[in-house]
Design a protein around this nucleic acid. Structure first.
Lengths: 207, 207
DNA sequence: AGTTTTCGAAACGCGACCGTTGCGTATCGT
DNA sequence: ACGATACGCAACGGTCGCGTTTCGAAAACT
């Protein structure tokens, strides 16, 4: 908790509703693509229908507000069904796809991709809190696939992850009004990745 | 050319040096991760060692300055060697990798990934000028591979492109002081993509 | 009832940047 | 030489957001 100080519960208690409105406004604006640099406390206050005082009483600065707001995003990667590697990979990519369609969740990628350089502290905490757990879950699916023999024993897991996740991010970032992410993209990505691009007459006759 | 007007060559001619300094400063700042919104004419002028007047005399607004600056980035994709699909793919990814290490060239991805929503005009022109030609070149390599029989006839070319380019962008965006892009990433990416992840005892024994 | 704390709102002085204008100087064509 | 234009620089009035302060009202405690 980066909150500046708990008030000794003597007088009027802090409004839960105001706090939620502030965090919501913050997340929404970041989700819409507003940079942390551009994010103004005044705009957050106005959007949340709250006085600036109410914000400054809780957070010392903008970065703390953003950190705490992002921390409220609990987006657990689901335990993979575990039927097979293909199903698990598709499931995870599908999570990414569906999340990307909600404005709120876009702030995850927006922060991760845009703010790393300028707010290293924010990025580091965000990386530990959100990014790494997800990478690890994804990594485990691939490792398990190697262990079960579904995937090549010499598969470069990190590179494989980059390909699938990178392709997904690529599409979601490029997506927009005119360029929606196809519903079946996760399946198509996983299938192409599993089969490989090369034409091999001894094997690829169709699945 | 978005330049506001050519002066009738009567008096003192406009300084080539100043113009170059302005464009250089603009590109450098964008390459460093400064948003177009954040980019201030004052900062550009100061960095270029130039008066604001000199900028406003040439460009009507910030967006025009950015458009013209980006247009000076002539970054032709090389004609691929054409030895085989693998070599061509590695070559193109290698171009992306090496470009990403130069600050100046980072403004390509920065603009493409961060400014699409807020500056649709800028993004559209940039897309036509830089992005689409490169996508098309990349696409041709894959199509040629299908035509020569090196790649599967039913390969989903768009998905394949997303995987390779997306993975590369993913790494370059994530890269930084502590996270350099491995030199051999292009090769590793292409090899994993061509082979596929799946373990197939009838085929994968090594290359 | 009285105390304490928070609430939203408004205003403060401060600094950054806007786009414009005027200044004295430099550099071109005629 | 002379007029025209561009140069860098400094200043203008204006807007925006900063972080702080003050205000009267509201909501909890003893």
């Amino acid at each position: 908790m980066t909150t500046i100080q708990e008030s000794a519960g003597r007088g009027r208690p802090r409004s839960e509703r105001a706090e939620k409105a502030i965090v919501d406004a913050t997340l929404d604006m970041i989700g819409e693509g507003v940079t942390v640099s551009e994010l103004s406390i005044e705009a957050v206050a106005s959007r949340a229908g709250v006085g600036k005082t109410t914000i400054y009483r809780r957070w010392a600065n903008k970065e703390d507000l953003v950190v705490d707001s992002l921390a409220t995003l609990r987006l657990p990667m689901p335990e993979p069904g575990g039927a097979d590697v293909r199903a698990d990979l598709v499931e995870y990519l599908e999570v990414m796809r569906s999340e990307s369609s909600e404005l709120r969740n876009r702030c995850i990628t927006n922060i991760a991709l845009n703010e790393a350089d300028r707010f290293p502290d924010l990025y580091r905490r965000f990386r530990e809190l959100v990014i790494e757990p997800r990478r690890e879950a994804f990594r485990q699916v691939l490792r398990r696939g190697v262990a079960t023999g579904e995937l090549r024993p010499d598969l470069d897991v990190e590179v494989a992850m980059s390909m699938l996740v990178g392709a997904m991010l690529f599409h979601t970032k490029m997506s927009g009004p005119g360029y929606p992410v196809p519903d079946d993209l996760p399946e198509r990505l996983v299938d192409e990745a599993l089969r490989g691009f090369r034409y091999d007459v001894t094997r690829n006759v169709a699945s």
